[in-house]
């Protein structure tokens, strides 16, 4: 890093300031002729990488059931208390499943702690960033909205495994 310059360290040329002004102006002028970085959103959409933390979703296995066993760790670790779970009993091999699994997207801060703590790799952060609602009630996502087939989440799952 460049050494910090104090007022007394400046040369006369720098202290006149006008040349420095000209330098600054030339930089912005050059910038004006560079192409824009802007992505024109609704027409062009940002496709995130696996490292992106979009809205948290539940993994839906190929056989049609959720991976989640409703252990409640994500709900416990969630710093914003966005997750509410009611467990229930099933006949499947893992006898516990979420009867109700709700994430309040108004509370969610996309920290990804739920994903990190999950012992079953059942809740992961998706690439979905389009989250607009017009009612508070709509912001509470139930299992119908949260379950996403495992095939769509491959990127993120691979990313997570590469960091384990």
């Amino acid at each position: 890093m460049a050494k910090k310059k104090r007022m007394k360290d400046l040369t006369l040329w720098e202290r006149i300031y006008l040349p420095e002004v000209a330098k600054g102006l030339s930089i912005t002028l050059q910038n004006m002729f560079r192409p824009a970085f802007t992505m024109e959103y609704p027409e062009v959409k940002f496709m995130p990488q696996g490292s992106y933390r979009g809205r948290p979703v539940l993994v839906l296995e190929e056989h049609g059931g959720e991976r989640c066993v409703a252990c409640g760790l994500c709900s416990r670790v969630c710093p914003a208390l966005a997750i509410e779970i009611q467990a229930g009993e099933t006949d499947r091999e893992k006898e516990r499943y979420p009867e109700k699994f709700e994430i309040n997207m108004l509370r969610c801060i996309f920290c990804g702690l739920c994903e990190e703590v999950c012992p079953e790799e059942a809740i992961v952060m998706s690439k979905d960033y389009e989250l607009a609602f017009t009612k508070r009630e709509d912001a509470i996502y139930g299992k119908d909205k949260l379950l996403v087939p495992v095939a769509e989440l491959q990127d993120r799952i691979e990313f997570l495994r590469s960091f384990k």
């Binding site: 002028l29 910038n31 004006m32 560079r34 192409p35 824009a36 970085f37 802007t38």
Partner: peptide, 10 residues
């Protein structure tokens, strides 16, 4: 517009 150009925006 000019501010956008100077900042590589649209």
């Amino acid at each position: 517009k000019i501010s956008a150009w100077a900042q590589s925006r649209v």
